[in-house]
Design a protein around this nucleic acid. Structure first.
Lengths: 115, 115
DNA sequence: ATCGTTTATCGCAAATATACGATAATATAG
DNA sequence: CTATATTATCGTATATTTGCGATAAACGAT
C-alpha cells in the first residue's frame, strides 16, 4: 500500500524526478561537483574526498550512473569517473522547464491576487 | 548505522540536496508545474489533478512548503497555493552552479583523455 | 449551535534509502 | 601462480518515504 505509484505519471515526470532523486543526497552532489571541476577523477580519490566508507561511496556512484549523470571507465585495477556531458545537458534543459514559467512576469501570489 | 550523515556536509550541499529531494517525486514535480502554469491554485483543484488520495497530496504539499518552494494562504475554508518566487529563483541559481562547469569547454571524458 | 465543505494531521503498513563490514571480483606486479 | 591493490556487491540493521483511511481542525452558511 505504500508502493510509489510511478505508473500514474508521465515518462517526463518520472525521468526528471529520477534525476532530482539522484541529486537529493549531499554526498552525490559533492561527487557531481568534484567531477565537473576536475573533469575526471579516480574512484579512490572520490572516496578520499567524502566522509563515508568505500562501500557507501560505491553505492552513491552507482546511483549517479544509473540515471546516466556520470560514467565510469575501467583503467587497470582502478575506475576513472567523469560526467556524462550529453545526459547532464539534457537533464539541465529539462530542469530549466520546471523553473522557467515563473520568470515570465509577476507570477502573482495568492495574496497579491486577492487584495 | 543507517542514519544519513548530513552533519558531515556543508550548508550549501544540504540545502540544495533538500531542494532536489523535494523535486524527486513525480507528484511534487506535477504540483510545481501546475503552480508555475496557473500562478495560483486551490488545494482541492491540485488534489483533483493528481492520481493520489487527498491525504497523500497534502503530505506532498507540506514537503514542498517545508523547503520553501511554495506557500499556502488560507482563503476561507480553502487554501490557496502558489510558488514562492524568491525561493524558487534562489534554488534555480544554486542548481545552475552544479550544472555550469561542464558547459565550459570539452569537459573531457576518461576515454577521450586517455586514448 | 449545527451542518457541510475543505484541508491537515495521526497512525499504520509497506517500500526505499542509507550506511558499513565482509567478501567477491578484477587487474597488475613480482 | 601468488600477493597486493582497487572497486563492486552482498548481507544486514536502521532510518526515511510513500500511501491511505480515519479523524481532527477550521471556516462559512444556515
Amino acid at each position: 500500500m505504500a508502493k510509489p505509484k510511478t505508473e500514474e505519471f508521465t515518462p517526463d515526470e518520472i525521468y526528471l524526478s529520477d534525476v532530482a532523486k539522484a541529486l537529493s543526497h549531499p554526498a552525490r552532489l559533492r561527487i557531481m561537483k568534484i567531477l565537473t571541476e576536475m573533469n575526471v577523477c579516480m574512484c579512490g580519490e572520490i572516496v578520499d574526498l567524502l566522509p563515508l566508507a568505500q562501500a557507501t561511496v560505491s553505492q552513491h556512484l552507482k546511483e549517479l550512473k544509473r540515471v546516466g549523470l556520470i560514467q565510469g571507465d575501467i583503467d587497470g585495477p582502478k575506475v576513472c569517473y567523469c560526467v556524462n556531458t550529453d545526459n547532464l545537458t539534457k537533464a539541465k534543459a529539462e530542469m530549466e522547464k520546471i523553473f522557467s514559467n515563473l520568470t515570465k512576469k509577476g507570477a502573482l501570489s495568492c495574496k497579491t491576487k486577492k487584495k
